[in-house]
Nucleic acid binder design. Structure first.
Length: 882
RNA sequence: GGGAGCAUAGCUCAGCUGGUAGAGCGCACGCCUUACACGCGUGAUGUCACAGGUUCGAGCCCUGUUGUUCCCACCA
């Protein structure tokens, strides 16, 4: 207490210190407490590859707000942090570094040595992420931090794999999958991003066998795949090609004989109506091939190069081969025409190179049985998306989901726990490393080389982090978790998979609410990206404006699920807000004489007004929080602090604080402190640092603001009459100020106010407030005893201001331009009459009176009554001007 | 080809279950009114995309149109 505070808030000085205090105090720890309800959030684990970006900052902020709110509400709050090993992404990074620094590939090092390097990387960057998160003020339980490749989580992965395998829900098979030749691995469907790219449609002539000068003309966007063609298909209903179905054609350049088949798949309208079939490199062709027994011939190797056996093309990269093949087709007269064609190309979500569909032996999760329950829990509302529209996205995806390719040809990840016997060929799948074949007991077994999709382990995150599959106390108490907060961009990758995984393995959906937020874009609305160089580093912003300002920026001014633009000037505005609170607190602390905050027995009108305002703010904010309308909640607190507390209440108290009456002084201090303290609690989830810092320096009980009880509405602190009365005072203050401003009277020039009103009691009480805030030398309140008094004052050359509650006179008439004043009055009168006419129209409408809620009708009646009174006063005032 | 979002003040956006529009920034004028110039006071600015409909009443609900962004989908 009594500590001298700097004039401007310095977040850099405060934040680190406060965070350390919380950590030391164990404030973040989630304690199992049977007397409390748990509230659990698991953090979407950031990749160990990178650093925090603005999207993470938003994601963390939302989670932190919810966690802090629930913790204050009395829940046993637990927020589990962690990081993801991010298979492909991390492996690529480490490989790049290896190549750049040492000119080596992972193969040069070998699997074990390479993995050591990745672990080094993980330790370095994983720690950095934690540091960054702490700067934002996240209140997660660091003791429970997990990594997807921790021993416990790896056990969970093995357990799930074996369990699904034994249920027949995991299988290995040769199917068309998406292959990234750059990352040299298979991808799941979700990992392919489709982009419209300009390309060509090449029309190629395939001669019909045994018939001179007869051809079929096929159209293709990927001519290099022709090397793997094993047929041509036409639509069975296509009259043009009826006669050639069943015949054979010859593949140019390769001279392969291929059947011409009829299949419904072919669209007669597109291209020439003839389609070359490449079953090994196109998912549709693969299907057609199955129906017609076409051969599958793979012509691209894992690196996207043409395989052996194709002469000069062999060894060529796919793009090189395309050029060469087109050139040769042209030279041979096989190329009929080329037309530009926009087409949808699949690209790798990690490296953005074109993906090649190809046949490969991979592991899959059978989705149909798992999707059933995952659909049910969302359809029946056991798991709810906020905003609700995302449940449609989810359902639509889940309804159409295909089997999930989970094997990756990488080294970094959970190695597939399957061993093939070199003697009998049988597969052993086991949670613990087997020493012999489960079938023939031969010791000659070899483990699969591949690892699992990163998302296979993240899918288990909500329960694997709590100790599952062990039956741990944490798991029993904290699971299912409550809210999952994430961006809409990973609903398919992650949210969907967590839901079906939890349903399958724990029998429960992993959380009851999925809070979806949008992307943080740059100030021009573009995605922030490394290549554009338009990314804004949250830590730089936090350093400059304070983490609280950054957090407040990220949660206000946007609505759930929608993207937001990051505008630096908004950070400035939020920093100004922080500073405003800081200075309000400095004011409260100046000459503070109380040591304990207790509301006094007797309260003034303005005390009751502010308490009453606060009292209705509390449930409003709480309701918004419960409805996940965090931005609205924050905005309400902001408005209360700036408008009600600072602009009005603090000003109201100055008269008492600077007066002689020590009792009144103390009373004002009590109310100031009380309201500030309660407000700091409401603001704390949004701006944890500054609120804690201020709270610590105010009279308080308890150790930490962050562990205080969330405010509750109190019936005895609701004062509607005083709110109304103060409205009159505030309105009068405004009216006087407006008039003075209009007349260009500086605040230093005080004027005596004479207030004619029917609410004499209110204005007498409010006189000291008006005197101060309306820059009056003195205030005299007279009754509204007829127009005579008013006329008298007008005669004395007073300026008159008319409000709902009063006529206010001040001796500034010499400054008034009569004509302008008349115009102004006429304008206001016109507007007021217009408003009244509207109201009267509505009130005389039987439909409105009978159908609208009584409360609304009553409100409008009262308003009309007020307006009538005002209009009378305005008319008189106008008349007096002649 | 399906689905979704958005269109509100000069800019960026709020607007909860329908009761006649708000914020921040910017702009204009005036202020060092002893917490704050990262501030204070006052003010200007909107056919809430367009057209219909439901309703006593629509920025908000329904239908359609236009523009725009995104997601999903195997059209070679």
């Amino acid at each position: 207490m009594g500590k001298e505070l700097p004039k401007a808030y310095e977040p850099q000085e405060v934040e680190g210190r406060i965070y350390e205090m919380w950590e030391k105090g164990g404030c973040f720890r989630g304690h199992r407490d049977q007397s409390k309800k748990p509230f659990t959030i698991v953090m979407p684990p950031p990749n160990v590859t990178g650093q925090l970006h603005m999207g993470h900052a938003m994601d963390c902020t939302l989670q932190d707000i919810l966690t802090r709110f629930k913790r204050m509400e009395g829940y046993a709050a637990l927020w589990v942090p962690g990081t993801d090993h991010a298979g492909i992404a991390t492996q690529i990074k480490v490989e790049e570094a290896l190549r750049e620094n040492e000119g080596l590939t992972r193969y040069d090092l070998g699997r074990d040595k390479f993995l050591e390097r990745v672990w080094d990387w993980k330790h370095k960057y994983g720690a950095r992420i934690v540091e960054q998160q702490k700067k934002l003020g996240v209140s997660c339980d660091w003791d429970r931090a997990r990594f997807t490749m921790d021993e416990g989580l790896s056990k969970a992965v093995r357990h799930v794999f074996v369990s699904l395998y034994e249920k027949g829900l995991i299988y290995k098979g040769s199917r068309i999958i998406n292959w990234c030749p750059h990352c040299v691995t298979a991808l799941s469907d979700a990992e392919v991003e489709y982009q419209d790219k300009p390309g060509n449609l090449w029309h190629i002539r395939y001669p019909i066998q045994g018939e001179k000068d007869k051809y079929v003309i096929v159209a293709t966007t990927r001519p290099e795949t022709m090397l793997g063609d094993t047929g041509v298909a036409v639509n069975p209903n296509d009259a043009r090609y009826k006669d050639i179905v069943g015949k054979k054609c010859v593949l140019p350049l390769v001279n392969r004989e291929m059947p011409i088949v009829a299949d419904e798949y072919v669209d007669m309208e597109f291209g020439t109506g003839c389609v070359k079939m490449t079953p090994a490199h196109d998912p549709n062709d693969f299907e057609v091939g199955l129906r017609h027994n076409l051969e599958t011939i793979r012509v691209l190797d894992d690196n996207g190069k043409i395989v052996e056996g194709y002469g000069r093309y062999s060894g060529m990269d796919r793009y090189e081969a395309r050029k060469a093949i087109i050139a040769d087709l042209e030279a041979g007269g096989w190329l009929v025409k080329v037309e530009p064609h926009q087409h949808n190309v699949g690209t790798c979500y990690r490296c953005h190179n074109d993906v090649e569909p190809l046949i490969s032996a991979q592991w899959f999760v059978k989705m149909e049985p798992l999707a059933r329950e995952a659909l049910r829990v969302v359809r029946e509302g056991e798991t709810r998306f906020v905003p609700d529209r995302f449940s449609k996205t989810y359902i639509n995806w889940m309804e159409n989901v295909r089997d999930w390719c989970i094997s990756r040809q990488l080294w970094w990840g959970h190695r597939i726990p399957a061993w093939t016997c070199q003697d009998c060929g049988k597969m052993t799948v086991s949670e613990t490393d087997p020493t012999e074949c489960c079938h023939c007991h031969s010791g000659n077994i070899l483990q699969e080389e591949d690892v699992l999709d990163t998302w296979f382990s993240s899918a288990l995150w909500p329960f694997s982090t709590l100790g599952w599959p062990e039956d741990t106390e944490d798991f029993r108490y904290f699971f299912p978790t409550d809210v999952l907060v994430t961006g809409y961009d990973i609903i398919f990758f992650w949210v969907a998979r967590m839901i079906f995984s939890a349903c399958e393995h724990t029998g429960k959906p992993p959380f009851h609410t999925v809070l979806i937020h949008g992307l943080v874009r740059d100030d021009k609305g573009r995605k922030m990206s490394k290549s554009l160089g338009n990314g804004v580093d949250p830590l730089v912003v936090a350093e400059q404006y304070g983490a609280d300002a950054l957090r407040f920026n990220l949660v206000t001014g946007n609505s759930p699920g929608n993207d937001m633009r990051f505008l630096p000037e908004r950070c400035e505005a939020m920093r100004n807000f922080a500073n405003k609170i800081w200075n309000a607190s400095r004011f409260v602390q100046m000459n503070l004489t109380i040591e304990k905050v207790e509301l006094p027995e007797t309260l003034t009108m303005e005390d009751k007004w502010v308490l009453s305002k606060l009292n209705s703010l509390i449930p409003a904010v709480t309701e918004n929080m419960d409805a996940y309308e965090l931005g609205v909640a924050a905005q309400k607190v902001y408005d209360f602090i700036w408008d009600d507390y600072c602009d009005w209440y603090i000003e109201f108290t100055k008269a008492r604080l600077q007066g002689e009456d020590s009792g009144a002084k103390e009373q004002a201090q009590q109310v100031l402190c009380y309201v500030l303290t309660e407000t700091l609690k409401l603001l704390h989830p949004f701006m944890p640092f500054i609120t804690e810092e201020i709270w610590q320096s105010l009279p308080h009980e308890g150790d930490y603001l962050m562990l205080q009880k969330w405010p509750e509405q109190k019936r005895e602190l609701s004062f509607p009459a005083e709110e109304k009365a103060m409205d009159l005072i505030i309105e009068a203050t405004r009216a006087v100020r407006a008039k003075r401003s209009e007349l260009n009277v500086p605040p230093s020039k005080k004027a005596h106010l004479t207030i004619a009103t029917e609410e004499t009691a209110v204005f007498e009480q409010g006189a000291p407030l008006l005197k101060r805030l309306a820059w009056a030398s003195d205030v005299t309140v007279v009754g509204m005893a007829g127009a005579s008094g008013s006329d008298e004052m007008r005669k004395q050359g007073m300026v008159e201001v008319v409000t709902f509650g009063a006529r206010i006179f001040m001796p500034l008439a010499e400054l008034v331009d009569l004509e302008q004043e008349k115009k102004r009055l006429e304008k206001e009168l016109g507007a007021r009459k217009g408003e009244l006419a509207g109201l009267e129209g509505r009130l005389s409408n039987p439909g409105f009176v009978s159908k609208a809620p009584a409360q609304v009708v009553e409100g409008q009646r009262a308003r009309a009554e007020e307006l009538r009174g005002l209009i009378v006063k305005l008319e008189e005032s106008l008349a007096s001007l002649g």
